[in-house]
Design a protein around this nucleic acid. Sequence first.
RNA 1: GGCGGCGUAGCCGAGUGGUUCAGGCAGAGGUUUGCAAAACCUUGUACAUGGGUUCGAAUCCCAUCGCCGCCUCCA
Length: 454
Amino acid sequence: MLKIYDTAQRAIVDFVPRTEGAASMYVCGVTPYDIAHLGHGRTAVVFDIMRRHLTHRGYAVTFVTNVTDIEDKIIARAAAKGTTESDLAQVFQDEYWQQMDRLDVQRPDEMPRATEFVPQMQALIAELIAAGRAYVIEGSGVYFDVASLEDYGKLSRRSLEQLIDSAGSRVAVDDDKHSPVDFALWKAAKPGEPEWNSPWGLGRPGWHIECSAMALEILGEGFDLHGGGDDLVFPHHENEIAQAEGAGHPFARYWLHSAMVMVGSEKMSKSAGNFPSLASAIDAHGAATFRWVVVRTHYRRQMEITDDALRAAGAEMEGFNALARRAHRGGIAAAPTADISAFLSVMDNDFDTPNAVAVIHGWRSAANSALDDGRADDASALVAQVRAALAVLGITLDDGSANGGDAEIDALVEARAEARRAKKFAESDRIRDELAGRGIVLEDTSSGTVWRRS
RNA sequence: GGCGGCGUAGCCGAGUGGUUCAGGCAGAGGUUUGCAAAACCUUGUACAUGGGUUCGAAUCCCAUCGCCGCCUCCA
């Protein structure tokens, strides 16, 4: 039985989908106005693993991730760069998916862009007005009337009083709004900004409405899982719920939130300017290592992704790759099927990847022992378990088979092997040192020498 | 100020009342190897502090200290 931590209930609960055997999932995507950072990488990997695990458990998963391609930051950045909003969004969306592809993050089944769903947003806004949950301020826009919704704040556990108390202390309040906590559904057009026609005049959608409208449009009422970074709980997800339920549409059954990535004990954020790029981390340490460092910490726990952390994770990954190389060189093929039930049941407990990692390490160690002892069948089964479990985590091992293409290195490796056979160790060591100088590390196995780049 | 989380051995990171242990990285010793590399084996009595509950607490309760997040755009 899959159990998940539901932010709304603040508890680990059984996952019971809307439709048996299916799982519909909406994960808030990015606002593409700058390059992807480490936090984007973590969040994407976390939800990708949830998706893979659900799929592995037999659910037919429908996975939706939106793109917020019209928003204040995009408008400001496009103006600063002298480009259009859509071009700017496209550039950074492409960069984002380029990194996601390197990380083997599976593409969503649907990737709706906010600008393509303006009619649906307007329809939802109209419903909210009709339901008495929203009001129009001429020349300003349409606002959600928070006080009209009895249980507003239920996701983030905030009361209306405390919200009103703190409102205005950090954000300027529009005096025309009925309450300082009311938020914009539709913003009246401003000169030089993109605009759409609407029953309330030219303008553009507020930030939160897109996700309510698109999730309902694509996944329907009462879809299963809604996810995102935990910085979105309030106000974004809270407002999504208000917009959907305020119009009478049951919204997400479960809420999943992944914790933030910290840098130097502070939350990384674009506004603070402390955001190491995802690309540079992958460049330096590899995609599998990045995934591994994410997986080592539970998704609901804050973590730092430092160079040291990546190095340690890289050392672990290297151990797994070494196993794959050994098995490959020794002609040990992974068994066609693998029993990874021990791994899966750990994962069933709210995607407990840290403990799942321990299970995989156990198999790795046992596989090496089996290879040491020449127990080929055991080794084959264990290697298969390691590979299958890692696949659920989105990691594919490098067994070195792609290293065969370098004729020059292969020739040197062979020359060294000959020298060794002739017991000319001075010569064989000289060749090994030469290769080491070029970043090539040799490993002599019982079935021959394999090499890798260090 | 309100809401929430965290503080575990050199480092990362599980664990929520009890024989024996998370797991990993780094370190040390050993086996293997011509020497290495890789691998395997052995090796660490840690739980912020002070009280309390209990036969027994890292684990429950209270207090204290420290760190972090949300309350503003943010993955």
